[in-house]
Simulated scan of single mutants.
Amino acid sequence: MSVKFLSAASFGYGALARSSKVCAAALAVFVGLSEGVSAETVTIAALGDSLSHGYGLPAGQGFVPQLQAWLDANGADAKVLNAGVSGDTTAGGLSRVDWTLTDDVDAMIVELGGNDLLRGVDPDVSRQNLSGILSAAHAKEVEVLLVGIEGTANFGADYKQRFDAMYPDLAQEFGTLYYPNFFAGIAAGGVTPETLRNFMQPDGIHPNAEGVKLIIAAIGPSVLELVNAAQ
């Protein structure tokens, strides 16, 4: 909205008074609209696999509800939607990204690749799928936090190198926010048998509720950055 300022010489007193009232009313509307935009809740879709979905955990203890509680406690006006599907690969995420990105979604956390790693999917294929997901978000002008996961040496050093490289490479290519390792909050003190007992479920793959709490404490600031970018 533009406001045109008019000189008093152009009007008689009555006309000037009416003009002033109109400008004041227009300014009030503008301020009200600005306040409404700044206070609008940011809707975040957490597109991921079982780690996002909350596999093996009671309701309210998974990644999404714990993240929501953390954001609330830190004063963020944001709503997190659980778009995690247990067992999903990057291909699965790509197949459902379009209907995940509804008009009310302002931002997206992309947490995928763990099941590709477990199945030995070619990292070039995983990279292409993630690229498709980020392209879809870019087309919808949705801000993204890309969350990586560290590869293992099970399929050789070359596989691990290519797998680990795809996350930072894609984040740079698409200009997204980037969080290197979903498990950073748990792995910060080193991965030991005690760590696995205290913070992981018996399968050694999925975090327990206390493990999720550590994960959220570590990734939370990056999600706050995502919220700010989407506002």
Rank of each mutant, 00 (worst) to 15 (best):
V227E: 10
N129A: 06
G175R: 07
T90A: 11
H138A: 15
G148V: 12
F5H: 06
D164P: 14
P58G: 05
Q172W: 05
W70Q: 02
G92A: 06
S50L: 02
L81N: 05
A26E: 13
A17K: 07
V110A: 01
G87A: 06
V110M: 06
L27M: 10
A59D: 12
T100K: 00
G190S: 00
R119G: 05
A229W: 00
G211Y: 02
A26M: 08
A229V: 03
E150D: 08
P65S: 05
L146V: 10
A165C: 10
G175S: 07
S222Q: 13
M166W: 12
G120Q: 03
V22L: 14
A26V: 10
I219W: 00
S222F: 12
A165W: 09
A46P: 04
D124Y: 06
T192R: 00
T152I: 10
S20P: 04
V147Q: 10
V31M: 14
D124W: 06
N129Y: 02
G190I: 00
P168Y: 12
N208F: 02
A217D: 14
G148F: 13
D106M: 09
V37F: 15
L67M: 15
T41I: 01
Q231N: 15
G60K: 03
V42P: 08
M108W: 09
N82A: 01
P221G: 06
A157W: 08
E194M: 01
A165G: 13
T43S: 10
K21P: 03
A25G: 10
A209E: 15
L130V: 08
V31A: 15
E150V: 11
G189S: 12
A217T: 04
L51P: 01
D103M: 01
D203R: 09
K140V: 05
L33H: 07
E143H: 12
